[in-house]
Amino acid sequence: MSVVMTTQYREVLRLLLGSILVLGVPADLPPCEEPFIYFPGVGCMTDPLIPHPMNYTQAIEYCQSIGGYLLEPSTDEIQGFIFDNLFGSVEYDYWLSLRRNGSEFIWDHSQQPLSFDAWGVDEPNLNQDCAMASVEHSFFWATSQCDVERGVICNAPERLGLCSGPKWTFVEQLDQCFLWDTDSMSWENAVDFCKSQGDRVHLVEILNSKKNEILKEALSNDPIAYSKGSFWMGLNDREREGQYIWENSGLEASFFDWSENQPAGDAQDCTVMYYGGNFQWYDSDCPSFFYPLCEEDAE
């Protein structure tokens, strides 16, 4: 198989890369960490002109090894932009991070069911377990056996290089990095865990409604965060009942986003952002197990 790049494709790629500065990303602050390239409106991905042919399992492992994940065109906008504008001149099938689970296909990276699909004619074939963007189907999706070699494109979070590692998430509206892809643990262990991640890292502190709403939206929209559920914050009243203090800064809280009938009890001295309450705040027993929500302060 071969990869063909036309003059039209080169022009599209040039315009895309040139538009980084139009979007206000400083030239000395790349939004992606190498080997990823930033495509406005799409995000960070590896060069589609270098197909890296390998089987599905190898493709998953390769993307993980460079801090990314196999391509997930999970919206109509991404599907249309990538395949209509970029891949029309590339004569190669590319793996999607999409695998059969019983009678349905789910995204392998986010472990979410399809809320959008772009299957080609007579697809999917439930006798095959993996999926690809198919040349034969004009880069609509088709199923495939998993052990054949196809091209690989990896996605990665934008501005990966600004955070401490691939599991961190950069929230652009706050210009800050957060870690929520962790194991569950008690509140005290969560405090220690966050501090172990770096000198400027601690359990999240939410001092105003703007930060609160941005974080709630980020958690709701991130498949990994939403699948985990509830997250420890630094807020607690362990020293004096009803006097809520942020653990890292020692500041007394003046802003709250308690859910209805919260806080609930004298014995519940620690606080979580609870997914069942749209990530509003609930008090909880400190030995209970939830996921740490760590944040890294700016230098």
Score class of each variant (00 low, 15 high):
Glu260Ser: 13
His52Met: 11
Asp122Cys: 14
Tyr56Gln: 01
Val191Ala: 02
Gln112Val: 05
Leu29Tyr: 07
His109Glu: 09
Glu104Asn: 09
Glu205Tyr: 08
Arg240Ser: 08
Asn236Cys: 10
Val148Asp: 02
Tyr92Phe: 06
Glu260Met: 13
Thr271Lys: 01
Phe255Val: 15
Leu219Cys: 15
Trp107Ala: 01
Glu260Arg: 14
Ser209Arg: 05
Glu252Ser: 05
Trp187Val: 12
Ile78Glu: 08
Lys228Ser: 05
Leu98Trp: 08
Leu235Val: 11
Glu188Asn: 12
Glu213Val: 06
Val3His: 06
Asp28Lys: 06
Ile214Glu: 13
Leu203Lys: 00
Met273Gln: 05
Thr7Val: 12
Ser184Lys: 14
Glu158Pro: 07
Ile60Leu: 15
Thr182Tyr: 15
Leu13Asn: 05
Ile206Leu: 13
Gly43Asn: 13
His52Gly: 04
Gly165Glu: 03
Ile82Gln: 02
Thr143Asp: 01
Tyr226Asp: 05
Leu219Trp: 01
Leu23Gly: 12
Ile20Thr: 10
Ala27Phe: 06
Asn101Trp: 11
Trp119Cys: 12
Thr271Phe: 05
Asp28Cys: 02
Ile37His: 10
Leu174Tyr: 13
Leu293Ala: 06
Ile66Phe: 07
Pro166Trp: 01
Tyr275Gln: 14
Ile245Asp: 07
Asp76Leu: 07
Asn278Gln: 08
Ala264Val: 12
Ile37Ala: 08
